[in-house]
Amino acid sequence: MKRTVFVLLIVSALFSCQRQGSESASVPVIALVMKTLNNPFFIEMQEGAQAAATALQAKLLVQAPERELDVEKQMQIIENLIQRKVAAICVTPSGSKEIIPAIIKANQAGIPILVVDTRVDSAALAEAGAQIATFIGSDNFDGGRMAGRMIIEKLGGKGNIAILEGVPGHETGDSRLRGFHHEVDKAAGISIVASQTANFERDQGYSVFQNILESQQKLDAVFACNDMMALGAVEAIAAANRGGQIVVVGFDAITDAREAIKNGAMTASIAQNPRDMGKIAIENALHLIKGESIPEYIPVKIDLIQ
């Protein structure tokens, strides 16, 4: 009667077993826990990590929650990986404070945690007495400044700007936003006429920016805290027939954005090099496993793509 369930489970389990089959005791297992696997940025990071793991003969496990920002599921994954006794865990936290209890659990199990891309709140980390091995990532604050300077230059120091923010309270978006403000607020001729969140999502970027376009007849530039939102904005601009009139700057330089920059629909994006992040994370995890020490901050270079 329950036969069907059994068959299903066995099939799926065998299928997964096969993937695990090549694992041998001597090969170190490194886990990479991502925010999501639906975003090209993280897919590129995964590819970078996988390439490094293959080159260095390590086994890589990549896991992510079904939904981005579901930090509780991310915590479950880390708990389960601890049970599996992996050698090191690289994580791009879905919540910069909420991930700390999971880090503590890894600390207790003696498994090093490498934080990638998104910073963990350092004050909360210290307060909780948790330890991370390193942070590998770009300085989002600097990236925000780079975008700010670029827009000021494009507009000749004068104009109206809109901002598409990321998920509120999210470290990555917040730093980018702070960096951007750091430059733009000083510029006398520039005014920020709208600043709303589109939760890092393309469809929301589209609809939110459509509304902004509707209310702001004179708009010269938009800064989006990631490329997904920027691409949404690009589509909204095209739909409103205002193409070429508005400078669009995004963040992350994902493939679609590079494409849009090439054909002129988008002006620029800040490149984060997720591939490098993934690669550096795996390399350093292996250093740790071998007992070598690594620096507590490993910057990954940022580029302006235009």
């Binding site: 369930v5 695990q20 896991q63």
Partner: peptide, 29 residues
């Protein structure tokens, strides 16, 4: 299921598929 698939290192995409299938099979049964 989630725990086991994590332990086995199965990707989250497969996890979603399996859980969905279990729901359907359970109700069919």
């Amino acid at each position: 299921l989630r725990n086991g698939l994590n332990l086995l290192g199965v990707s989250s995409f497969v996890q979603q598929t399996v859980i969905g299938a279990v729901i359907i099979v359970a109700v069919l049964l």
